[in-house]
Amino acid sequence: MAHSVLDFSSFSALSAEETHLIETSVAQYGAPLLLLDCDTVRSQYRALKAALPDVTLHFALKPLPHPAVVRALLDEGASFDLATSGEVDLVASQGVPAENTIHTHPIKRDIDIRDALAYGCQVFVVDNMNELEKFIPYRDEAEVLIRLSFRNAEAFADLSKKFGCSSESAIKMMTRAQELGIRIKGLSFHVGSQTTNPNKYVEAIHACRAVMEEAIELGLPALSTLDIGGGFPVSYCSKVTPIKEFCRPINAALATLPETVQVLAEPGRFIVAPAVMSVASVMGQAEREGETWYYLDDGVYGSFSGLMFDHGDYPIMAIKQGERFPSVLAGPTCDSIDVVAEHIMLPKLENGDLIVTRVMGAYTSATATDFNFFKRAQTVVLNDMVADQRMIG
Rank of each mutant, 00 (worst) to 15 (best):
K161F: 06
L34W: 01
D388F: 00
D388L: 06
A368D: 04
Q28M: 02
H105C: 01
M308Y: 09
I102C: 14
Y363H: 15
I146G: 02
N372P: 00
I250T: 02
T369C: 07
N130P: 06
Y236R: 10
F189L: 07
E291P: 05
A51D: 00
V300P: 13
L33M: 12
P32F: 05
N100Q: 13
I184K: 08
F246C: 04
D89H: 11
A92S: 14
F304S: 03
G120P: 09
M212K: 03
T196A: 04
Y236D: 12
E143G: 01
R42E: 15
R269G: 06
A51E: 04
T19S: 05
I136A: 12
R376E: 11
S188E: 14
N372C: 03
L73W: 00
K239H: 15
D54N: 08
D384P: 02
I250P: 00
K200F: 08
S224T: 15
S235H: 09
D110E: 03
V272K: 11
L6W: 03
V55M: 01
E133N: 09
L159V: 09
V381H: 02
I182P: 05
I182L: 07
D384S: 00
V26M: 13
L64W: 04
D39P: 03
S327V: 01
T40W: 05
A368S: 05
I319G: 09
W293R: 11
T195H: 03
P332C: 07
M174Q: 13
D89F: 07
A27V: 12
V211S: 07
L90P: 01
V91I: 04
G77V: 08
A83S: 14
D110Y: 03
K134M: 10
S224K: 15
N130Q: 15
F150Q: 09
P267L: 11
D140K: 12
S10R: 11
I355G: 00
D54P: 06
M385D: 02
L35S: 09
M391P: 01
A60E: 15
T367H: 15
F371G: 01
I146T: 05
L52W: 09
R176N: 10
A155E: 07
F325P: 04
A177Q: 12
R248Q: 10
R390H: 12
Q122M: 07
G322M: 02
